[in-house]
């Protein structure tokens, strides 16, 4: 069962549903009655959320790519924008290849801009970071409230590669941003961060799988969520340490704030460890803002709404601060400010 098959066959019974363990909190089958038709490429203005950063731009428009569907790094500081745009209530399947050549470095600024109601977007990314290469992937999912997006990135790393990812999302009608990393160990390092800031009836699912296949690999992960109104956040994080992948160092943290009685967070952090000599840890918390801290701030003169916004933003900024690229980090910060200011009670 997959969205790709369902779109290909035009058959909604092929959609993943609650009965698929990995999709039980992101049910597509129960949501989508009919697979929409495809649409033509539509011209979109250059830029998007990362317009302020000078970069080569790749656009996936209604599932179509003009030119080559591959981003290849060649220098020590390449920057590419990959924008996934939907302007129609159409099915938008696409595959994009990203290759970071040995010893080169790429900043990939990836945005989801499915603004059309009823758009059904499915993007597969095939990513390779060759030995000693460095990829920073910053994903900003700014879909519209009535679109459905599934993005699945499969990442293969070479020896000593560095892969750092930050996925930021304001959700959609239903949205899943999944990353699967094949980690060779071998002094490669992975950072898999994320933040979901959800309001109204939006849904977002951040799913990650990192499989450590060899010795001497590190993975660190910090995902934070803020959910308000009737929104629903999903985090599924799995780190697998294969037999013999000794001296793996893997740390996972997922922390969420629930700001409304009707909001929901579903979290499934998993460490599956099959090696002996490893350092692995995970922490998972879901709670409300600390009311005592709110009173403390008010006692110092800060009005209640401002105190709540300050503490909520500070909670999320820990993720933003870890973004390596200065420009991307500040755009992400401004996005978080807007996102947390936009909803009642935030």
């Amino acid at each position: 069962m997959s969205l790709a098959t369902a779109i290909k066959l035009g058959d909604p019974t092929q959609l993943p549903s609650r009965r698929d363990e990995d999709w039980r909190w992101t049910d597509l089958r129960g949501l989508i009655r009919q697979i929409p038709p495809s649409a033509e490429w539509a011209e979109v203005g250059e830029g998007g959320p990362f317009a302020a950063i000078e970069a080569e731009e790749f656009v996936v428009s209604n599932g179509h790519i003009e030119g080559w569907n591959a981003v290849v790094s060649e220098g020590p500081a390449d920057i590419a924008r990959l924008r996934v745009v939907a302007t129609e209530a159409s099915s938008n399947p696409a595959t994009v290849f990203v290759t970071v050549r040995a010893g080169t470095s790429l900043l990939l600024l990836e945005t989801y801009e499915a603004l059309a109601d009823g758009a059904l977007t499915n993007v597969a990314l095939e990513v390779e970071v060759q030995a000693g290469g460095r990829l920073e992937r910053v994903v900003l999912a700014a879909d519209g409230p009535d679109s459905v997006t599934v993005s699945t990135a499969k990442v293969a790393l070479g020896e000593g590669a560095i892969f750092a990812q930050t996925v930021l999302t304001s959700g959609a009608r239903r949205q899943r941003l999944e990353t699967q990393v094949a980690h060779p160990g071998a002094f490669a390092s992975v950072r898999m961060d994320g933040a979901y800031l959800l309001a109204d009836k939006r849904h977002a699912d951040i799913t990650t799988v990192v499989t450590h296949q060899g010795v001497d690999g590190t993975t660190e992960q910090l995902v934070k969520g803020v959910v308000n109104d009737q929104a629903r956040g999903v985090f599924q994080g799995r780190i697998v340490v294969a037999h013999g992948a000794d001296r793996t160092d893997a740390r996972m943290g997922h922390h969420a704030l629930i700001l409304s009685d009707k909001a929901e967070v579903d979290a499934k952090p998993e460490l599956l460890i099959n090696a002996d000599d490893v350092a692995c840890a995970h922490g998972n918390t879901v709670g409300a803002l600390d009311e005592e801290a709110i009173f403390y701030a008010r006692q110092r003169g800060i009005p209640e709404a401002e105190a709540r916004a300050m503490l909520t933003l500070a909670f999320v900024e820990e993720v933003i601060d870890r973004i390596g690229h200065d420009g991307a980090r500040e755009i992400a910060r401004a996005w978080a400010h807007r996102q947390l200011g936009a909803s009642d009670g935030l």
Partner: peptide
């Protein structure tokens, strides 16, 4: 309100000051 009292100049030094993460 608590913050209005603070603005009028009332300050409480807490027995157990709160941690303000971030």
């Amino acid at each position: 309100a608590a913050n209005e009292r603070a603005a009028r100049g009332v300050f409480l030094s807490f027995q157990y000051p709160l941690e303000i993460p971030g």
